[in-house]
């Protein structure tokens, strides 16, 4: 698995993959129902609504109510998919999720678009960078952040077949597509993208592509990276992580999230217990975002491919001593 074999074929937003996946899941299983809080097309749920109007519910701008109704639908054996922006899917309704969905172990799929900085111009009020942390703290919650259109579609289909609460996180902008069409998505199974010996880069969501770019850049300088896509943040694929790290003994974690509470913290936690090695974090460092274009923002907040490459160089220095 050579990093240079990974190329992109066009780009589309991950939320479009969700929209397609939901449409197909609806066709496969009549128990699948959809709900939105006045953000139908932002979530790309218009396809599902058109095909299955009787199984779709417009809740209006009332996210807390939407989570409660979804939990109730789940008690009736339905498989509800709620759709709104990531901020209003989590922070806005944390206690509703906690009590009615997570604690009650309801089969609700909380589907969240416009996560992270790449939401862009709407700015910090909408750019949630704490959602992974909030959701992964909830006992029994599955947390998934796929990396491209194809994978988001596959993940949407997979969570429809899984019983239990799931947080599915995706984004707004068009983003390179580089994973196979019609892939089978395995919840909780990390995906290795390249083999390498010097450093392991774990990444999730949009930053998987960013990490691939970084690894290509590093390869030209003779640094060999193992890039691993952690699409499922919870449950974490401990085995795959420990396997790779026991070989490279140097780690970078990249995510479009706060450093506090994110994937980096999860992995560092695992490594602290089982295999202490130097770790560098590519994540937002305890600040809010702001308005701007997606790539400009990733650059300003230290989440570009150069930042991932620099983190790898730093961790290699630390590995030496």
């Amino acid at each position: 698995m050579n990093i240079n074999d990974i190329t992109s074929s066009g780009s589309r937003a991950t939320r479009e993959g969700f929209g397609q996946g939901l449409l197909e899941a609806g066709g496969q299983n009549p128990k699948v129902v959809g709900l939105t809080a006045d953000l139908l097309e932002s979530l790309q749920m218009q396809h599902f609504k058109k095909e299955f109007p009787e199984r779709f519910f417009q809740v209006g701008i009332a996210e807390a109510n939407m989570i409660g109704i979804a939990a109730g639908l789940a008690t009736a054996g339905k498989i509800p998919f709620t759709g709104t922006f990531a901020n209003f899917s989590t922070g806005r309704v944390y206690d509703q999720i906690r009590q009615s969905v997570a604690y009650s172990h309801k089969n609700v799929k909380i589907c969240a678009s416009h996560a992270g900085l790449t939401l862009g111009e709407d700015g910090a009020t909408h750019q949630i960078l704490e959602d992974i942390g909030m959701m992964r703290m909830l006992p029994g919650m599955v947390v998934i952040n796929p990396c491209d259109y194809n994978q988001t579609k596959a993940a949407t289909l997979a969570i429809a077949e899984y019983y239990g609460p799931v947080y599915l996180r995706f984004g707004r902008p068009a983003w390179p597509i580089f994973t196979p069409e019609n892939q089978k998505f395995k919840i909780g199974k990390a995906l290795q993208l390249s083999t390498g010996k010097d450093v392991t880069i774990f990444a999730t969501g949009h930053l998987v592509w960013t990490s691939v770019e970084a690894a290509k850049q590093l390869a030209t300088q003779g640094v060999s990276c193992e890039v691993i896509n952690i699409h499922t943040i919870k449950p974490l694929d401990n085995e795959a992580i420990l396997d790779s790290v026991s070989k490279t003994r140097a780690v970078v974690v990249a995510e479009e999230h706060q450093r506090n509470g994110g994937l980096g913290e999860s992995i560092a936690n695992l490594l602290a217990h089982k295999l202490p090695v130097p770790v560098e974090f590519v994540a937002v460092n305890d600040s809010f975002g702001e308005s701007g274009k997606p790539l400009e923002l990733l650059e300003k907040y230290g989440l570009s491919s150069n930042d991932v490459a620099n983190a790898a160089r730093r961790v290699l220095e630390r590995k030496k001593v």
Partner: peptide, 16 residues
């Protein structure tokens, strides 16, 4: 407005 490093955030803010 709505550009990088602006006080005129997409949605009103006190932060800047």
């Amino acid at each position: 407005f709505r550009k990088l490093n602006s006080r005129l955030q997409g949605h009103p803010a006190t932060h800047e």
